Amino acid sequence: MPQRLANKAALITGAGSGIGLESSLLFAQEGANVLLVDINLAAAQKGAALIQERFPNVKALAVHADVGKEDDIKGAVDLAVAEFGRLDVMFNNAGIMHPADDHALNTEEKIWDLTMQINVKGVWWGCKYAIMAMRKNPVDEERGLRVGGSIINTASFVALMGAATPQLAYTASKGAVLSMTRELAMVHAREGIRLNSLCPGPLKTPLLMDFLNTPEKKERRLVHLPMGRFGEAVELAKAALFLASDDSSYMTGTDFKVDGGLTSCYVTPVGEPTLQPPTSLI
């Protein structure tokens, strides 16, 4: 079976852990050259080294970047184009869920502003510079269409429904990601540039587990999950691969939900067997 991202170039933010790391490994396995971007350079470098060890036929690089700084994102995109010759996939995955994020009465303005800077402005800048790079990709002579590319923005199920545990800034920021993705998808559809949001349900990643830091908070989330478990980062990586590849060539502007059924369920089934999560790629 041909590799789904053969000869393509991908940039993934938040690539040092969780969804970003699993996606970096999976994209490389499918033939992509990958630039792993993270504020934790050591973690990104470790991921790049793992890719080179497992998939020596592709190129993997790591770079430090704070997605809350426009110059850092521009520099990362420029580096990807300089090293790989093009940019085909931009996965704006980096984000924060601050432990001090709460409801409207308790959330401080500085927490709100920090969350918006990273989760909203960071995605905006990622889309902006990726679009500029993708516009330079060649034209498919057979179809007479520009190759364009795929931009994937990590949103959340809380952008579609209220969160049971208050996290106002995070929820608002992810709603903004959905709206921004839809509009950009419409604006750039005729350029062959597809934009889709990935909406994870609750995942067993450090970002969420650090927030759900008590048994009560964890149970408050689990009670709403039909599958009876938190998702795994590798499950979201597989969804990101689908959106990155030509398998989703007729999809743009979507809110792609990978949430264990959470947003479709009113009452959670009780007493049913729990499905076992897949094994991580790491």
Rank of each mutant, 00 (worst) to 15 (best):
S24D: 06
A44R: 01
K59W: 05
A100V: 05
L262G: 00
I73G: 04
G201L: 06
D210K: 15
N213R: 07
G144E: 05
A133F: 03
A42W: 08
Q276A: 10
G228H: 08
H188D: 05
G31I: 02
A9T: 07
A82D: 12
M227E: 15
L207A: 05
S156L: 14
I118M: 04
V34A: 08
G122W: 00
D113S: 14
A28K: 02
G31T: 06
P226F: 13
D102C: 02
T107C: 05
P215Q: 12
V234T: 15
K204A: 15
R220P: 04
H103W: 10
M209Q: 11
G228R: 09
A62Y: 00
Q29G: 01
V147R: 15
S248E: 09
A62G: 12
E216Q: 14
N93W: 06
G14T: 06
D71L: 11
L50V: 05
N119L: 05
K217S: 13
A130V: 07
G261S: 13
N196F: 07
Y170D: 09
G149N: 03
K204F: 10
Y170F: 13
E183N: 15
H98C: 08
S156P: 09
P278L: 08
P56S: 11
T279M: 13
P166N: 10
V81R: 02
Q167N: 12
L222P: 08
E83H: 08
S156C: 12
T263P: 08
L208K: 02
L195M: 15
K136M: 10
K128I: 10
V67R: 03
D71Y: 02
A49T: 08
P277Y: 06
V34T: 09
A104M: 14
E83D: 10
L198F: 05
A169G: 09
D71K: 14
L114R: 14
S197G: 12
K238W: 05
A185L: 09
L21Q: 10
H64C: 11
M227V: 12
P56Q: 10
L79G: 07
F91W: 06
Y170M: 15
A42S: 15
A48R: 00
V58T: 02
M209K: 09
A240T: 11
A48S: 11
E22D: 05
L243S: 04
L25I: 14
E30G: 03
K217C: 14
G47Y: 01
G253N: 11
D259C: 09
